[in-house]
Simulated assay, not measured.
Amino acid sequence: MERKIKLIWDFRGPAASKTAQHHEIHLKEYITSEKLALDITGCQDLNDLHSLAYMIVTNSEMKTVRDALKPHRGQLYEG
Score class of each variant (00 low, 15 high):
residue 3 R to I: 03
residue 77 Y to A: 07
residue 61 E to T: 00
residue 5 I to V: 08
residue 18 K to D: 10
residue 7 L to E: 02
residue 39 D to R: 12
residue 74 G to E: 14
residue 22 H to L: 06
residue 58 T to P: 07
residue 73 R to L: 03
residue 46 L to T: 11
residue 21 Q to A: 15
residue 25 I to S: 08
residue 55 M to D: 09
residue 18 K to L: 06
residue 43 C to P: 00
residue 45 D to F: 03
residue 22 H to R: 15
residue 5 I to D: 03
residue 59 N to P: 08
residue 30 Y to H: 12
residue 61 E to R: 08
residue 15 A to R: 15
residue 46 L to R: 08
residue 39 D to V: 10
residue 41 T to I: 01
residue 37 A to W: 10
residue 14 P to R: 10
residue 8 I to E: 05
residue 32 T to L: 05
residue 46 L to H: 06
residue 16 A to Q: 00
residue 55 M to I: 08
residue 51 S to K: 01
residue 10 D to C: 04
residue 20 A to F: 08
residue 12 R to G: 09
residue 72 H to F: 04
residue 16 A to K: 03
residue 31 I to T: 01
residue 57 V to M: 09
residue 28 K to I: 12
residue 78 E to S: 14
residue 48 D to H: 06
residue 10 D to A: 08
residue 54 Y to Q: 10
residue 12 R to W: 11
residue 47 N to C: 01
residue 76 L to C: 11
residue 8 I to K: 02
residue 68 A to D: 14
residue 78 E to V: 09
residue 76 L to M: 15
residue 67 D to R: 07
residue 79 G to W: 04
residue 34 E to D: 02
residue 54 Y to F: 08
residue 52 L to W: 02
residue 69 L to S: 01
residue 71 P to C: 02
residue 69 L to Y: 08
residue 6 K to T: 03
residue 58 T to C: 13
residue 42 G to E: 04
residue 70 K to N: 12
residue 7 L to C: 10
residue 8 I to H: 08
residue 63 K to N: 15
residue 10 D to T: 00
residue 56 I to P: 09
residue 27 L to I: 00
residue 65 V to P: 02
residue 26 H to M: 08
residue 22 H to E: 15
residue 53 A to N: 12
residue 30 Y to M: 06
residue 59 N to G: 12
residue 14 P to C: 04
residue 61 E to D: 00
residue 8 I to M: 00
residue 48 D to E: 14
residue 41 T to G: 08
residue 69 L to M: 11
residue 57 V to D: 03
residue 11 F to A: 00
residue 18 K to I: 02
residue 8 I to G: 00
residue 17 S to R: 07
residue 59 N to F: 01
residue 9 W to M: 00
residue 49 L to W: 14
residue 1 M to T: 04
residue 47 N to W: 11
residue 50 H to A: 09
residue 13 G to V: 03
residue 28 K to D: 01
residue 46 L to Y: 01
residue 19 T to Y: 05
residue 10 D to I: 05
residue 40 I to C: 01
residue 58 T to N: 13
residue 52 L to D: 09
residue 68 A to G: 01
residue 13 G to H: 06
residue 67 D to S: 11
residue 53 A to E: 12
residue 54 Y to L: 06
residue 72 H to A: 09
residue 79 G to Q: 02
residue 49 L to K: 13
residue 9 W to Y: 07
residue 48 D to V: 10
residue 4 K to V: 01
residue 62 M to C: 13
residue 5 I to N: 00
residue 15 A to S: 09
residue 70 K to S: 11
residue 8 I to V: 05
residue 66 R to H: 01
residue 49 L to S: 13
residue 11 F to P: 00
residue 59 N to H: 10
residue 32 T to H: 08
residue 47 N to H: 03
residue 39 D to A: 12
residue 64 T to D: 12
residue 25 I to K: 14
residue 25 I to D: 07
residue 70 K to V: 06
residue 18 K to A: 11
residue 17 S to N: 06
residue 46 L to E: 03
residue 60 S to Q: 13
residue 32 T to R: 14
residue 15 A to L: 14
residue 78 E to D: 09
residue 56 I to T: 01
residue 32 T to Q: 05
residue 60 S to F: 02
residue 73 R to V: 13
residue 22 H to A: 15
residue 26 H to C: 06
residue 28 K to S: 00
residue 47 N to L: 05
residue 11 F to N: 04
residue 78 E to N: 14
residue 62 M to P: 05
residue 1 M to R: 15
residue 46 L to D: 05
residue 15 A to D: 14
residue 8 I to T: 05
residue 33 S to C: 08
residue 77 Y to T: 07
residue 42 G to T: 03
